[in-house]
Design a protein around this nucleic acid. Structure first.
Lengths: 213, 213, 213, 213
DNA sequence: AATGAATGAGTCTTCATTCAT
DNA sequence: TATGAATGAAGACTCATTCAT
């Protein structure tokens, strides 16, 4: 509920959207997340959005267009800017310790996730069947983020705070740990004391990535 | 090619299956993995399997039945037995060091994955839309594996080889690391030197989970 | 190009038409001729005419209305007047010989056709599906032309220049010959030396309709 | 009624057609002739044929396929063979007089037309919108018939029975006369004494095409 | 057991037409 | 007068499923 409102808020801000379009996007997002793209009919979406079926196709040439209209801008306008801009906030602060950087990073990504749970879910569910999505993501998001992360890691390596493995290896070790945290929380739905679990995770990463003596 | 043959071999061994059934299962697995369950038509499956459409429904009451006939036995007959039995091989060996246990575990799971890539892919893709799958998995596989793992972890904790966090927390920290390794390799398709990357990962886990001083 | 301009010119002269209406009529004529009435959408017409879809319906209550607005006035205002008035020019000249009358007639009809190719095409294509068109044509055009032709033919019969068959039979024999000439030229697109082919045709008609000895 | 039965008879003879297919073809032919291809819905056809809409698409991949399945075989299997084989009967008899040949020709074509009125109507109505039809016709029917006719005409020219114009010109003069006869009778629906009207037409052709002195 | 023709509900999409602006 | 968003009925076509052979 809280999440949806946040998602809807973001739609609200976009003045280029008519009210009906907003309804369509909200309804489609809801249903795609719940039943999957292929198993959701435009008829259902129309009903849920309270518009005529034809109205959907006035705004989105095809059903797939509708999917991309949900996922692409989220990637470009939200994921993109947020990741890059917000990330910069984190990255540029030049936290004294790697540990602090990781903590800020986790918090930042968690906020993004909570605002975009459903769209992220749709993206993850549909990406195997729509190669364009994968390519778009890698091209527009992936590469930039990776490059930025590499800089950061090398920064902390030069400060002697983390082990001198290749930066990509460091990412491969650390990223799943953080993503596993989110997956456990949001996908498996495990309830825990966030604060404590994050502390343990950071401690684990710090030790695991500590420089060799 | 190698993988498919391995999958087909497993089907071959099952004497309760007619030749046509085997063809259907192979075709369906292929298509479900490629296009997703909802986007695959029984007509396509029949054509690819070289049988009449009616034949599918003689063996599987509904299309969903066919999905479950692919995924459930894989879980029960393959995932289940293999995980538990094979895992026992690993777990019971009572490896001197936690590190050796982890290494054996990784190898074991990698073999399983390579034999069942497509079915695992189908499972992961469809699980969000078919709650029974999730429940079945948790009930029949998840719990048992978790319980077994908890024993093991506590065993190594009592030997003073790993940190004395709650066992579930240890799993939450270690599992994503290993799964991240597989995801990077099999989903993202990154090429690397397996041997070396595994060594680094194990080293990371060992350090990250080392007992506190 | 030349033809269209001629057609557009005729629309231009009609002061009762707004610019938008003209555009609509031109676009509709083009598309109806090319794809047929039923297979042309009002949306396409609007786009081609550069107007909003609603604008079409402000001027023409229904799509069929638009068809009739193209075909009927062409019949009444163009076919009608032109046929009758222009025809009179031919008929009244009281050509010395039947042969000269036929030649003038062919030339006159050819000019008309070239100015109205598309509308004639639409008329011929749609007349089977819209009985009103057929009736309108017979009522307003057909009868008058036939009656006039009968007078002419009887005139030349009385001068002993053509065979004394019933006038309608003479029309039935001569008309298809002339129409066949146009069809071969404009429908089949056969290229030939007009002058010579017309001479042969007239010679054929003259001989074929010559009085019996 | 008589015509339809004759058309249905011909369908009956084709053993490769199921009963349902026959019904579909009969219903589609009826409706296409009446309302035109574009204005006829597959739903209507299904209802009229007494089958489910899906059944149409089991036999004919698209609606256009259905059109071609009506028109093409009529052209190839009926028009083709009949024209060529039957025509040969006429052409090879080596009628003493050109006049007799024309008379036989008219009779032969009239029989064909009466058996295939509706399909011919559909063909003529749709040919402007489906260029393949035109090409198919020219390729498979047109050229062969024209070539054969040229032989015949040159035969009678060498016997001194008809004027020594280019054979194609003779065809261009004679064909519309005969087709005009059919059009007047079957399209305009004029009632007359066939026998007498045919005699007049033949006399007209004979005189019109008589050799120059 | 296997077939494949038949089904009719359902799919995405287009259409002619309306109406508030 | 002109617009173009909105409509919902209808369009072509697909689907999972059934059943007589």
């Amino acid at each position: 509920m809280k999440d949806e409102n946040m998602f809807e808020e973001l739609l609200q801000e976009d003045d280029s959207l008519t009210e009906k379009q907003r309804q369509i996007l909200i309804a489609a997002t809801e249903m795609f997340a719940e039943k999957g793209f292929a198993a959701t009919s435009t008829n259902e979406i129309a009903k849920k959005a309270g518009v005529a079926e034809g109205t959907i196709f006035r705004h989105y040439k095809t059903k797939k267009d509708l999917l991309l209209s949900i996922v692409t801008p989220m990637m470009l306008k939200m994921l993109g800017p947020i990741i890059l801009k917000d990330l910069n906030k984190v990255l540029n602060k030049d936290f004294e310790h790697f540990e602090d950087f990781v903590r800020a990073m986790i918090k930042n990504r968690q906020e993004f996730l909570e605002k975009n749970l459903k769209v992220v879910q749709i993206f993850l569910q549909e990406v195997p069947f729509h190669p364009e999505l994968k390519e778009q993501f890698i091209e527009h998001i992936g590469k930039k983020v990776i490059n930025r992360l590499i800089q950061i890691i090398e920064h902390y390596q030069s400060k002697g705070q983390i082990v001198k493995l290749p930066a990509t290896t460091v990412i491969r070790l650390a990223a799943p740990t953080i993503m596993g945290f989110f997956a456990t929380k949001y996908v498996l739905g495990v309830k825990w004391d966030d604060e404590e679990e994050i502390n343990r995770m950071i401690h684990f990463l710090k030790k695991g990535l500590a420089p060799e003596e």
